[in-house]
Structures are given as C-alpha cells and as structure tokens.
Simulated assay, not measured.
Amino acid sequence: MSDVILSNRQSGRVKRAAALVRKKDRRAQGRFLVEGPQAVREALVHAPQLVEVVYATDEAQPWQLELDRLADREGVELVRATADVVAAMTETVTPQGVVAVVADCRVPVAEACAGGRLVAILHEVRDPGNAGAVLRAADAAGADAVVFAGDSVDPLHPKVVRSTTGSLFHLPVASAPALEDAVLAAREAGLAVVAADVGGAELAASREEQGLAEATAWVFGNEARGLSAKALAHVDRSVRLPIFGRAESLNLATAASVLLYESAFAQRSR
C-alpha cells in the first residue's frame, strides 16, 4: 500500500471506477463495483483472484485493519483515498468509505447449474433490491446457483451487489439471454423446473407429495406481473404460496425465501 493518498476526483482511475455504475461501461471494462466493508471483505475472502483494487478512505474505521490484512495477504492493491474521492466512485447517498473494482464474476449458465440440487432463476426481475435480496436468500438456503434470465436486472448493478451484502461471492451467478436458455441448462443438469405462480398447486400438496425434495430450479417472475403464460409453458409445474391473512400479495424476495427454504428443508430431510 502506497503512502500517497488519492485526492483528485478527476483522476483517470477515479473516472474509470465511477463509470462502472453504468451497465455499458461494466460490459466494456469487464468489471464492476463492490461497495461497503462487508461486501468487499467477502470478495477478498471468497474471490480474491477477481479483486483488482480496493479504495479505502483515509479516515480510521473499525474495518480498516481487517481489509488491510486481507488485501495484503491476497496481494491486492489497496489505495488510500479521501472520503470525497471514494464517494465520487459511487452513487450511494451515504458511502461507507470503501469500494473495490472487481472482475466480472459470472459463470456460464450451464456451469452454474451443473451438479446443483437447488437453483433460483430470476425471470424479468427488474428491481435491484429485490434481485439482491433473492440472491442473498438463495445463499442462506444453501442454493447452488442463481441465474438472471431474460430482461432481469444486471446482477452486477451496484444496487444488486450492495443488497447481497457479499452473497454474490458465495455461489455461482449466471446470466442467461432468455428464460429458455436457463430452463434448458437446468434440465440438462437434471433439475425439475418449478415456477412460483399464483395459479399453481398449493404448496402443501407439493410438500405432501415430497415433490420439493427433488433437485429443483425455482423460477421467479416479475415483481408486478409474475410469469406470463409463455414463460409458464417452459416449466414442469407451478406452485402457489398460500396467503392465510388479508395481505394482497407477498413481496417477491419474501416469497422466494420461503420457497427456497421449503426445498432446502425437504432436500435435507431425505
């Protein structure tokens, strides 16, 4: 780590990092931003070979010693920067003082699904916070991969990355051009493809039939519209999560969390 503190907001490296908030620049550079001490720590621990540089504020913070140690251990460049320089690299209203530039961590969809028993497929999920929350829930439930299909939000979008709080680096993440590509990869990997849909069979029925214990790729649709008839035509069956109270519906991330855990419980009880 150099003793020089990066203080020029107009420097080339600051501008290149700041450009990564845009999808076209992420594609062009093959990199993305990871913000916050927890997410940067997870990147350094679980995917250090992808971390190109860490920019950290020059103001003493409780997390600095650990990040300094991890960056030094993994041979990752760590640059001290002023708080306003770190802020200039992000769109966060209240930056947490550390940001890393990381190489694209996605894997091919076939590789993501291969050998898996529990996979989450997001189809036309547009809200970054929801997408990140589903990915985090999939990680917590022990899923083997998450696939972003069709017109879903970019999994490397800064808001998605932030909302995963590091789970992005715990399991394979892939992007598929269309739902059909994700479904094909899942089937070739031996997974049943099950949609979460309000018109599906009751969850209790699937539980009683022990259908949730099989290797499964869950398909979750758009937050507002769910899954279209065209999309549902590609799945093996669909399951409905019942609402016992008076709520009109469940948030996508909440519903996905319940269903992924249902599969996780069933698979682990066999």
Rank of each mutant, 00 (worst) to 15 (best):
V161T: 00
A185V: 13
A195S: 03
D181H: 15
V198F: 14
V161I: 15
R187V: 06
A176F: 13
L184W: 08
E188V: 02
R187S: 12
A189D: 02
V194H: 05
A195N: 05
A185D: 13
R162Q: 10
L203M: 08
A205L: 12
S175I: 02
A195G: 02
P158F: 02
A205Y: 05
V173M: 12
R187G: 10
S163R: 05
H170Q: 08
K159L: 15
P158K: 13
E180H: 11
G199R: 11
G200N: 09
H170S: 08
A196R: 03
P172A: 04
A176S: 08
R162V: 08
E202S: 10
L191H: 05
S206Y: 15
T165Q: 09
G200V: 04
A196C: 06
L168K: 03
K159S: 12
A186E: 02
G199S: 03
V194F: 07
S206A: 14
A178H: 09
S167C: 11
V183N: 04
P172I: 03
F169Y: 13
A176R: 10
V198R: 06
A192T: 09
V160M: 03
A196L: 15
A178M: 13
V173G: 08
S163A: 14
A185W: 09
E188K: 01
H170K: 15
S206I: 03
L184R: 09
A189L: 04
V198Y: 12
P177C: 00
K159F: 14
A195H: 09
L191T: 15
H157E: 15
R162C: 10
P177A: 00
D181W: 08
P177I: 03
G190P: 07
D197I: 02
A186Q: 10
A185E: 13
H170A: 04
E202H: 12
D197W: 12
A192V: 15
R162H: 14
A204C: 10
L191S: 03
E188M: 01
A182W: 10
S167Q: 04
G190N: 13
G190R: 03
A196V: 12
K159I: 02
V161F: 09
E180F: 06
D181N: 15
A201W: 12
A182G: 11
V183Y: 14
V161D: 00
R187C: 06
S206Q: 11
L191M: 05
A195V: 09
E180L: 07
E180Y: 11
A189I: 12
L184M: 11
L191P: 11
P158M: 12
A186N: 05
V161W: 00
H170M: 13
T165K: 01
A196I: 02
L168R: 11
V194A: 07
A192E: 07
H170P: 03
F169I: 13
K159D: 14
A185P: 06
S163L: 07
L184I: 13
S163K: 07
L179I: 05
A204V: 15
L191V: 13
A189T: 07
A189G: 09
A189S: 13
H157T: 12
S206T: 05
L156G: 00
H170W: 07
A201N: 10
V193T: 06
L168D: 00
F169L: 03
F169Q: 01
H157C: 01
L179T: 06
E188S: 06
A174E: 02
L168A: 11
V160S: 04
L191Q: 01
A204Y: 13
A185Q: 10
L191G: 01
L168G: 03
E188R: 02
D181V: 08
